[in-house]
């Protein structure tokens, strides 16, 4: 980006003018900054303390565990070895990890496909009923995730709602195997995480200046084209937030595959859970957790860099 000469000159003269006052001015700004910085620190202190106690500390514990080993009675023997990590990256878990990412990715795409139109509708056409719609989006949170997932069993099992209806309508003879399949797990994940997608999408679509969409139409863009070239690019922050909020917990989820899954739906969350509970190998479980976190962090870093700069550039 080359700046025109006149502008450069204007800037130069502006800084010359400012330069005369630089001493007292910058000192004043410095004082102001220092002041507001202190206030900000004070305001953040409770949160910082909370995060330190309940996030950083447990993570530190797990990090320490992950280099240790398992004692005879399932206790942790502290040490410093990378054994757990080499086991964590063993080819044994590759299909499980791939499946976890695959299921989570499909669920993320499905929540995006459903959440975007929903959020768009509420933001653009919600009018005075916006808050009611938003509450409806959040209503599932009023029940425990466990209970909501259980209710899918009632819906999907062979004598469940869906199969009974389909048989009654003579569409099928034998009940379909809906439960304990990849289908049911992805469905459960999609259902469970939909609000996490919808709310950030809503937040960014709500902020979007509606006259920009009208401007696009005005300049000859059809509805679909305006969506692709204006609405979606401008809601990318919401898309990033939503996909991360769905994808990350979905990858590590173990409740949904546990309740709705079967023998061929084992996810990495189940494996970690098993290490901590059934196998009582906390050191190995810790190493698996940390490895998953590292992979996710790396992935997020590249994802945000790629999507965040695309179109916005």
């Amino acid at each position: 980006m080359t700046k025109p000469a006149e502008n450069g000159m204007a800037e130069a003269s502006a800084s010359a003018i400012l330069g005369q006052n630089a001493g007292p001015l910058s000192r004043a700004i410095g004082r102001l900054r220092g002041h507001s910085f202190a206030v900000a620190n004070l305001l953040m202190a409770p949160t910082m303390l909370w995060l330190l106690l309940f996030l950083a500390l447990p993570l530190g514990v797990i990090l320490v565990y992950s280099f240790g080993g398992r004692g005879t009675y399932g206790d942790v023997i502290y040490g410093f070895s990378f054994d757990n990590y080499s086991r964590a990256f063993s080819p044994l878990w590759l299909p499980v990890i791939l499946r976890s990412f695959g299921f989570a990715a499909i669920a993320t795409l499905l929540t995006l496909a459903m959440g975007y139109p929903l959020a768009y509708f509420i933001a653009v056409y919600g009018g005075r009923r916006k808050n009611i719609y938003l509450i409806l989006v959040m209503v599932p949170f009023w029940t425990s995730y466990l209970i909501r997932t259980y209710s899918w069993i009632v819906i999907l099992r062979s004598q469940g709602v869906v199969n009974t209806l389909l048989q009654w309508a003579n569409i099928i003879d034998q009940p379909l195997d809906l439960l304990n399949t990849p289908f049911s797990v992805i469905l459960g994940l999609t259902y469970g995480f939909l609000p996490f997608m919808t709310l950030p999408l809503y937040a960014s679509l709500e902020k979007l200046d509606k006259s920009l969409i009208e401007a696009a139409w005005d300049l000859g863009a059809s509805r679909i084209w305006a969506l692709l070239t204006v609405t979606i690019p401008l809601s990318i922050p919401g898309i990033i937030a939503g996909t991360l909020l769905v994808f990350i917990p979905a990858v590590g989820d173990f409740v949904t595959p546990d309740l709705l899954g079967g023998p061929d739906t084992l996810m990495i969350g189940n494996v970690i859970q098993q290490q901590f509970l059934a196998a009582r190998d906390w050191a190995y479980g810790s190493a698996l957790s940390f490895s998953l976190m590292a992979i996710l962090l790396l992935g997020i870093f590249f994802y945000v860099r790629k999507v965040g700069t695309e179109n916005l550039a």
Binding site: D209, S211, L212, E214, W217, D218, L219, G220, V230, L234
Partner: peptide, 20 residues
């Protein structure tokens, strides 16, 4: 007719320039 099928263009009060 929808706006994109009319040979008319608008200068909006708030400009409505595409920020991206």
């Amino acid at each position: 007719l929808p706006p994109y099928r009319r040979n008319v263009n608008t200068v909006f009060q708030n400009y409505a320039l595409f920020p991206h």
